[in-house]
Simulated assay, not measured.
Amino acid sequence: MPTGLSLHIGLNSVDPSKYGGWAGRLRACENDARDMADLARGVGFGDTTLMTSEGTVKNVTAELRKAATRLKKGDIFLFTYSGHGGQVPDAPGPDVEEDDFDETLVLFDRQMLDDELYAEFQRFEEGVRIVSLLDSCHSGSGIESVSEILNPAAMEAQFGTSDPDQLEAGFRAMPLLRQTEIYERDKDFFLQLQQDLKSANGNGRKPTALLISGCQDNQFSMDGSQNGAFTGALLDVWSNGSFRGGYRQFHRAIQRKLPVTQSPNLYLTGEPGAEFLDQKPFTV
C-alpha cells in the first residue's frame, strides 16, 4: 500500500533581525498549516508542521530530505506553505527564468528560492507523486504598491476598503522596498546560490510534481482572519472530502471561488501521467 507524507509550513511573522527590522506580520498562516495538516491526516498522510519560528531554511530542508529518504515509487508527498512570497533577480545564464526572477518562500530566517525547493524535490525517487500548494504572493519587481494594480472600486467591494495601507497589510507579499534592500544586502549570497543550483541541476531529472499556487507570479494572495483566501477556497471546495474530480477540476473549482485579481495557477513538472492528474486530490 502506498505511503503518504506531508509537510505544512505556516509563518505569521519572520525574524526582523534577518529582514532589516521587518517582521512581516500576518494573521492566518498558522491556521492554514494546521487546517491542511488536519486534511492530510484525515486521508491517511503522516503529517509534520513547522510554525513561524520553526520555519527556517534548515528545518524545511531537513524535513524535505527525511521525506525523500522514506518515500518510494508510487508514494505521495504533500507540501503546503502559507506565508509571504518574494522575488529576487535570477542569475545570468542560459536557464534564466522567463520573467527574469526567482520566486521565493519568505521563511523565518531568509528567503528560500524556488530553485532550492525544486532541487529538494529532485531528491525524491522517480515515481513519487509530489503535490505542492503555495498560499503566498509572487509580486512583480515593477510593482511599488498594491494600489497601483488593483482597482479601488473592486477592492472596496471585495475587501470593504480601498485604503492602500490596509490593503498592503492584508497581502502576503514582501514590500518591494524591503525586497530591494535585502537583495542588495545579500546579493552575493543569492548569486552564488543560484549558480550552484544551476550547476548541480539534480542530474537533470525532473520530479513528478504538480503545483497549485495561490496566485500568478504577478499577483497577490490575500491573508484573512481565519484562513488565507486561497486556502479558504481550497478547503471550501474540498468540503471535508466530498469533492469529486481530479486535480485539474480541483484547480478550476478553486479558481471560481476567487476574484480575477487572485487567479491560482496549475503548474506541472516531469509530465505527471493522467492516472496521477485524474486522481481525487490527496489520494494516498
Rank of each mutant, 00 (worst) to 15 (best):
T48R: 15
E156Q: 15
R129E: 06
V237I: 12
N31P: 01
E63S: 04
A119Q: 12
A274M: 05
H251R: 02
Y19H: 08
S139I: 11
G241C: 10
S141T: 04
K73Q: 08
G24N: 06
G46V: 05
G83Q: 11
I149C: 04
K66I: 05
H138I: 05
T3Y: 03
Q262S: 03
N203H: 13
L234V: 07
G83I: 13
E103S: 07
R205Y: 04
F159L: 15
L234E: 04
D217C: 01
R205W: 02
L134D: 01
L107M: 07
G140I: 01
Y267A: 09
M222W: 13
D186N: 14
A274D: 12
Q262N: 02
F108I: 07
D217E: 11
M36R: 00
E120Q: 14
S53V: 07
Q87L: 09
F121A: 12
F124I: 05
M1S: 14
L50V: 11
S145Q: 12
E271M: 06
I143P: 01
R185A: 15
D99V: 03
L211G: 00
D163W: 13
P152E: 12
F45N: 08
I212D: 07
F45I: 06
E168H: 15
G273Q: 12
E125I: 00
N151V: 04
L64H: 03
E181D: 10
I76Y: 02
V128P: 01
D223R: 10
K187L: 11
A91P: 01
L258M: 13
K73W: 00
G83H: 11
K187C: 07
E168P: 08
M36H: 06
T283N: 14
I149K: 07
K198I: 11
D75A: 01
A62R: 07
R129W: 00
L5A: 10
D165H: 14
T231N: 07
Q87F: 01
D15Q: 01
T56K: 03
E275S: 15
A169K: 15
E116V: 12
Q158C: 13
G204L: 06
M222S: 14
R25G: 02
R34M: 02
F121W: 09
A67K: 00
V237N: 04
M155R: 10
D217T: 12
A37L: 05
